[in-house]
Amino acid sequence: MRRPLSHRLLGLAGRLAVALVVAFILLPAVVVTLSAFNDKAIMSFPPTGYSLRWFARAFSYKDFATGFRNGLIITAFASTLALLVGTGFAFALDRYSFRGKRTLEAILVSPLVIPHFTIGLGFLILAAQIQAARTFALVIATHVVLVLPFVMRSVYVSLRNLDARLEQAAASLGARPGRALVTVTLPLLLPGLVSGWLFAAILSFNEFTASLFVTAQATQTLPVAMYNYVREYADPTLAALSVVYIVVTATLLTIANRFLGLGKVLNVEHAR
């Protein structure tokens, strides 16, 4: 039986609307990707000819190379520290009830509310007082604060999804707390820990606003280097770099999703 014309038109309109929204979301990425292959030294769209020269420049420009290296160092330390601290807090919030629990929770997620430049500026003022304004430690400390809420959230959700009876079962079978932690709790939390670390790493590596305040020439991260570049040059090197960014991040997330099932980590599956 054929559906009435009005229904088919509505269905068509609906599909069109979805397609438009998706196109709108992807638009910036598409424009930047196409400009990256432009053979002219200006960022124009659509490109008139195609070339890979801007990719070559992106990889050979010295500030980008140091920014990339700095970014890796800062990201590795910041996300690992945030993971340790965040896991500790997530455990405390999940397992124990104590006075001021709500307040602690609010403070730990406050970087989501406080603007990044406020955090950056605050750390910069403090660091200047103790002559630490040009150090990696300052950048790392800032990034830890920025990514902590995301790590904590990820671990906390995994902990909520973990059935407390599994730990009780391990205990009833004779496993001391340490053994239960290593053989039951941690293996089941692993996807949450890894994806928490991964999100923190991506955020930290891409972070710009706070980093602009707390980095110096020697400690500048890739986004800051890119910002400095675009103030001087208008060629499509940045577009080429953006393409590399997108490809690398997408690859990392795809791999992580394949092995960890990120969907599980982003939702509370069931109440306990």
Binding site: D163, L166, Q168, A169, S172, G174
Partner: peptide, 13 residues
């Protein structure tokens, strides 16, 4: 862990 008691849980755990 020192009680030597076996438990079968409602959801089996």
């Amino acid at each position: 862990y020192a009680r030597e008691i076996g438990v079968v849980f409602q959801n089996y755990a």
